[in-house]
């Protein structure tokens, strides 16, 4: 499998480590009154789609960047690759 890194171009998947669902970026606020419930959902509940899935990959044997990869779990076709920092910034985070 080849992941087309937004900065470095096509790279072999062997250079990357898979983390999981890209929703892990959205860590709940620990001061929220419903924090316990939200952390339960954040840590334990996952969608398991047969089709497009947004997921986090770490370029460990490369530039050490975190990527948000959109992959079809049925075909392994990768339709989009973004830097996780850009995704987080687009959601209003500082980094």
């Amino acid at each position: 499998m080849i992941i087309n890194h937004p900065l470095l171009g096509p790279r072999d998947a062997a250079e990357f480590v898979y983390l999981g669902d890209a929703s892990l970026i959205d860590r709940p606020d620990w001061e929220d009154p419903d924090a316990a419930e939200k952390y339960y959902e954040y840590l334990y509940l996952r969608d398991n789609p047969a089709g497009l899935h947004r997921e986090l990959w770490f370029h460990e044997q490369g530039d050490r960047s975190w990527l948000v990869v959109t992959r079809n779990t049925l075909t392994h076709e990768i339709t989009n690759v973004e830097l996780a920092r850009d995704v987080a910034k687009a959601q209003g985070r500082s980094r």
Binding site: R11, E15, Q61, G62
Partner: peptide, 19 residues
């Protein structure tokens, strides 16, 4: 090396961290 080292893809001055 898993990187494409052909001079068109990886000309002089290019660098990559890989395995």
């Amino acid at each position: 090396c898993p990187i494409d080292l052909h001079p068109d893809a990886f000309p002089e001055g290019r660098a990559a961290r890989t395995v």
